[in-house]
Write a protein that binds this DNA or RNA. Structure first.
Length: 437
RNA sequence: GUGGCUGUAGCUCAGUUGGUUAGAGUCCUGGAUUGUGAUUCCAGUUGUCGAGGGUUCGAGUCCCUUCAGCCACCCCA
């Protein structure tokens, strides 16, 4: 075993038994974004290290100890992207997408963080993200949340996730509150546990999120972020809540919801589940009105979110939701050299004549028995049979493998029409069990 | 980065206080049925016991190191 080269720790192969769930999720998401007028953008996986330092924040865990950073052959410092927002903003600025215009963008792909692997957390993981630019009001915040709520319904996960909301206020208000909080925490420094003493330096707002029971009294008595919001942010948040109420989306306001990345301001939200162990956040985002300017663009309002594909796929697994199947409709059994040659070509003609038909052709010979066994394992509903007799008579055997019914022999020229009818008749059934939209 | 648990066939797992040649199920292949698949029966293949070192006459079993997986902390999607 040790001689075999293994995958890098925390970087997983996604095997055929789970790829149908990935495709279901990805197909559903793509259609959803189309329905809301969002456009896809694809960015490089590698960016200048500086980009992440300036956007995510120098003192965050991600930048301090989790980035895959290396010097390329020119000595430039590059980093495998740990998240998508920074690259998206960079691409928007560089290509003039954010200048005096609005954008609604989405992307998907792998992200990299050097953390200890755990359930729902990997070193290479995948996110689907959405970023909007140039839209300042709570209406776009609400649109994004409504869009995700619709997605959970389409995925059959609506009962598995809950929405948490908070407002961090403008970056000025947040900075002012941060100073007040730090003053308070310093006074009680002796009562802080080890983690919180560290957070006091790195991300003081996170102290409020501590799970340590011994800290709860201190936290409860701390100054509240909600009491220090600027008027505009307060108004913005109130309107967002009203929009969500009107749309019938349930939420919990969580004053401790802080988000780890420096660039967030005003609205932040998380969709969480209790079905995934410690990694309960399945989708999270917020407003980052300052980031575009911080990266050298014109001041531009922005709001976005990202969801973790592995976590959503794991949730889909929990739900045992029926999936659209990608199995072949028919498995082509071929006995004899002539049949192997002719069958390959006949299969091509059938695929030409019947769009959407999925035929798996047997390769490699073998007995009828073993070929039928493979036909059965393939999940196909039909076996198409071409042996010596069929070749001679220009016929084709069709045997149902999943339903009652006798094998029938058709003239080869009639096969395409028969299969087209078969697909039509079974289409309704297909869609019912597909779960796709 | 810290801690706990676990590594035996492709997969799921037995393997006694250390004792000869490491087992079962499943999967796969062939046959019973030489042109017909979820059943049944028969036969067959499967291993650096995660890796390296140590103790011992003898290690899958005990000790150390290391790697990997899982779970939790931290952090985050």
């Amino acid at each position: 075993m040790s001689k075999h080269i293994q995958a890098v720790r925390g970087m997983n192969d996604i095997l055929p038994d789970v790829t149908p769930r990935w495709r279901f999720l990805e197909d559903t998401v793509r259609k959803l974004f189309d329905a809301y007028g969002y456009q896809e953008i694809r960015m490089p996986i590698v960016e200048a290290t500086e980009l992440f330092k300036r956007s995510i924040g120098e003192v965050t865990d991600i930048v301090e100890k989790e980035m895959y950073t290396f010097a390329d052959r020119n000595g430039d410092m590059l980093t495998l992207r740990p998240e998508g927002t920074a690259g998206c903003v960079r691409a928007g600025i560089q290509n003039g997408l954010l200048y005096n215009q609005t954008q609604r963008l989405w992307y998907s792909g792998p992200m990299f963080r050097h953390e200890r692997p755990q359930k729902g957390r990997y070193r290479q993981f995948h996110q689907i993200g959405v970023e909007t630019f140039g839209l300042t009001g709570p209406d776009i915040d609400a649109e994004l949340i409504l869009m995700t709520a619709r997605l959970w319904k389409q995925l059959g996960l609506a009962d598995a996730v809950q929405l948490q909301l908070n407002s961090l206020g403008s970056s000025e208000a947040r900075a002012a509150y941060r100073a007040i909080l730090v003053d308070y925490l310093r006074v009680h420094h002796a009562q802080l546990d080890e983690d919180s003493q560290r957070r006091l330096e790195s991300n003081p707002l996170r102290v409020l999120d501590s799970k340590n029971p011994a800290m709860q009294e201190l936290i409860a008595a701390a100054p509240k972020l909600s009491d220090h919001l600027d008027e505009e942010s307060r108004q913005h948040f109130t309107e967002l809540c009203a929009l969500l109420d009107a749309a019938g989306v349930a939420y919990t306001i969580n004053p401790c919801l802080v988000r780890g990345l420096d660039y967030y301001s005003k609205t932040v939200f998380e969709w969480v589940t209790d079905k995934l162990g410690a990694q309960g956040t399945v989708c999270a985002g917020g407003r980052f009105d300052g980031l575009v300017e911080q990266l050298g663009g014109k001041p531009t309002a922005a709001m976005g979110f990202a969801m973790g594909i592995e976590r959503l796929v794991a949730l889909l697994e929990e739900q045992t939701m029926p999936l659209r199947d990608y199995q072949p409709h028919a498995y082509f059994v071929l006995l004899g050299e002539q049949a192997q040659r002719e069958g390959l070509l006949l299969a091509e003609r059938l695929r030409d004549a019947v769009p959407g038909l999925r035929i798996e052709s047997h390769c490699g010979g073998g007995s009828f028995k073993s070929q039928f066994k493979k036909a059965d394992r393939s999940g196909a509903a039909l076996a198409l049979i071409l042996g010596e007799a069929e070749c001679e008579q220009h016929t084709l055997g069709i045997k149902p493998l999943r339903a009652e019914g006798e094998q029938l022999q058709l003239a080869q020229h009639a096969a395409a029409a028969w299969l087209r009818d078969y697909l039509e008749q079974n289409q309704y059934e297909q869609e019912q069990s597909s779960g796709s939209v």
